Simulated assay, not measured.
Amino acid sequence: MTRTGLIIRHVPHEGLAGYRDPIEAAGYTLARVDVTDPGFGSIDLGEPDLLIMMGGPMGVYEQDAHPWIACQIRRLARRLDAGRPTLGVCFGAQMIAAAMGAPVYPGPAKEIGFHPLDFVDRASPLRHLANTPLLHWHGDTFDLPDDVELLASTAAYRHQAFRRGSNILALQFHGEMGLDPRFDEWLRQWPEALAETGGSVDEMRERHRRHGPAAVAAGRNMIAEWLSGLS
């Protein structure tokens, strides 16, 4: 039986990347829609068997500048209330938190670079990520919604991942990135973010080269296990 998956892309250079392989291996036929697509507002987000929301540089609270955010949150909330399988990455995770009624707001400082999670729930699919340097690139955070489990933390950002039941997974970090050439666009667009955290483009390229393959391998194992447990 063919299962459908829909990727919501908020900017062109933040795509499914390393997560594509385990999702397709699990039998999902994937389609993609950009939020800039004129038909985005009319798509039924409850219909796909799997919904995947990727990252973006905007904040959930910037709804005046991006009117589609409020529209997406309303439709997403209906899907989450129904417990439909949903994955959110970085901005996508923040959208899940907002759709569950939790506030999203700027964090204390940007967290950018490759480093391991300080806490991982080893009874969850995130066990595959333990002790693996992963890409972090965010400056916003959120309160934990009601009735969710905290799955991962770092010293800078306690709320790195959560799940509600077996079907809804929100990941603040980028376990999908490490082999995707679109990472060069991140470096090109936001060198000031690196400078703000004391890094440089050359240094980040080297860390991407050194840590990227293992990060993607761990991320793929995590997603494969999560998909196998969907109800």
Rank of each mutant, 00 (worst) to 15 (best):
residue 61 Y to W: 11
residue 74 R to K: 15
residue 123 A to D: 14
residue 68 W to N: 12
residue 142 F to G: 07
residue 91 F to P: 06
residue 128 H to F: 06
residue 123 A to V: 13
residue 101 G to M: 07
residue 121 D to R: 03
residue 81 D to H: 13
residue 61 Y to K: 05
residue 141 T to N: 04
residue 138 H to A: 08
residue 141 T to K: 00
residue 145 P to I: 02
residue 140 D to F: 05
residue 129 L to R: 05
residue 134 L to A: 01
residue 90 C to K: 09
residue 63 Q to M: 13
residue 126 L to S: 02
residue 79 R to A: 11
residue 135 L to Q: 03
residue 61 Y to H: 03
residue 71 C to H: 15
residue 85 P to N: 00
residue 145 P to A: 03
residue 141 T to D: 01
residue 112 I to R: 04
residue 92 G to N: 06
residue 129 L to A: 04
residue 70 A to I: 13
residue 92 G to K: 05
residue 136 H to E: 04
residue 126 L to G: 01
residue 140 D to V: 01
residue 123 A to M: 12
residue 69 I to C: 03
residue 82 A to S: 11
residue 90 C to A: 05
residue 107 G to L: 00
residue 67 P to F: 12
residue 103 P to D: 13
residue 125 P to Q: 05
residue 111 E to C: 11
residue 82 A to N: 12
residue 90 C to G: 01
residue 78 R to Q: 14
residue 114 F to L: 07
residue 84 R to G: 09
residue 97 A to V: 08
residue 106 P to T: 08
residue 144 L to E: 01
residue 80 L to W: 10
residue 126 L to R: 02
residue 114 F to H: 07
residue 128 H to Q: 04
residue 116 P to L: 11
residue 101 G to D: 04
residue 140 D to C: 03
residue 110 K to I: 15
residue 74 R to Y: 10
residue 62 E to T: 11
residue 113 G to D: 05
